[in-house]
Design a protein around this nucleic acid. Structure first.
Length: 260
DNA sequence: CACCAGGCTCCGA
DNA sequence: TCGGAGCATGGT
């Protein structure tokens, strides 16, 4: 696994490179500071082993995807070592609601403020001690707030989307855990009941939050990339790991074809 | 000042 | 069903 490619590829907004090759972030109420050398230790920890999805053979998946199309082979080559994280579905849903018509640095800031201002710090260090970690607020917590109370987040028109998501998750209208196993189209429709959740946000939630690897989020970059490099190819052609292919292609499009 | 940011809602035709 | 303005906020 390649840490930088995995943590900073835009699938998650809670990790930063705090020094060269040193990454810090929070998941499941746990704060972690690590480098590439810490990975063997990390695999021994049940929580982080699952979060980083060490039990999936990404090298084999990458080889299989590379066989499907010459351009996908090149995209996959540049993204070697990327894992799809097993993020908390509620946190992923909120993150991608906040991501719409927005840029990554600002999304990170909003998510950070959301955690800081609605939850108490959880001092917990799995590997290396660091500043207090703020866990992601539970849906029930957010559901009890008003748009005015979210004003400090400065997330603009997305505030009411966040509250609608919180209410529908808290009252069971959108049963996130059940969406792991129902047919993909059904899961997608369930998420799109939420005001502010369209196809892109729904698919990102499915892929990154519920680890539905067949989900294929399409944004403006992907539309261009598919038309340019995969004319006539349907996402379904990428099969059960289409979401991983999407991440390869997204990186390829965003970093430029020449990037290594 | 304009334009953009891992989109979506809402409105009119 | 489809297209396009408007949307809060912050950065360049």
């Amino acid at each position: 696994m390649n840490l930088r490619r995995t943590l900073l590829c835009g699938q998650c907004f809670r990790w930063r490179e705090i020094a060269p090759d040193v990454f810090a972030g929070t998941a499941g109420g746990r704060r972690l500071v690590l480098t590439q050398q810490d990975l063997p230790k990390l695999e021994q920890n049940p929580f982080w082993r699952r979060y980083f999805d060490f039990d999936t053979d990404y090298e084999t998946l990458r080889g299989q995807l590379a066989e499907l199309h010459p351009n996908l082979r090149e995209a996959a080559r540049q993204s070697a070592g990327i894992h799809i994280l097993r993020q908390d579905p509620w946190e992923a849903l909120c993150s991608f609601i906040l991501s719409q018509n927005n840029n990554i640095p600002r999304i990170q800031g909003i998510v950070s403020r959301l955690c800081q201002e609605t939850e108490e710090p959880l001092p917990h260090a799995a590997f290396q001690e660091s500043a207090a970690a703020h866990p992601f607020p539970r849906p029930e917590t957010l559901a009890g707030l008003t748009e005015a109370q979210l004003a400090p987040l400065r997330c603009g028109f997305r505030a009411r989307y966040l509250l609608d998501a919180a209410q529908k998750v808290a009252d069971g209208t959108v049963p996130l855990e059940q969406l792991r196993t129902v047919p993909l189209a059904e899961a997608r429709a369930a998420l799109m009941q939420i005001v502010g959740v369209g196809p892109k946000v729904a698919d990102c939630t499915l892929l990154y939050g519920l680890h539905r690897m067949e989900a294929f989020p399409v944004d403006v970059w992907m539309k261009r990339a598919m038309a340019q490099w995969f004319p006539g190819v349907e996402p379904a052609a990428f099969g059960a790991a289409a979401g991983l292919a999407q991440q390869y292609i997204f990186n390829w499009a965003r970093n430029g074809v020449a990037a290594g």
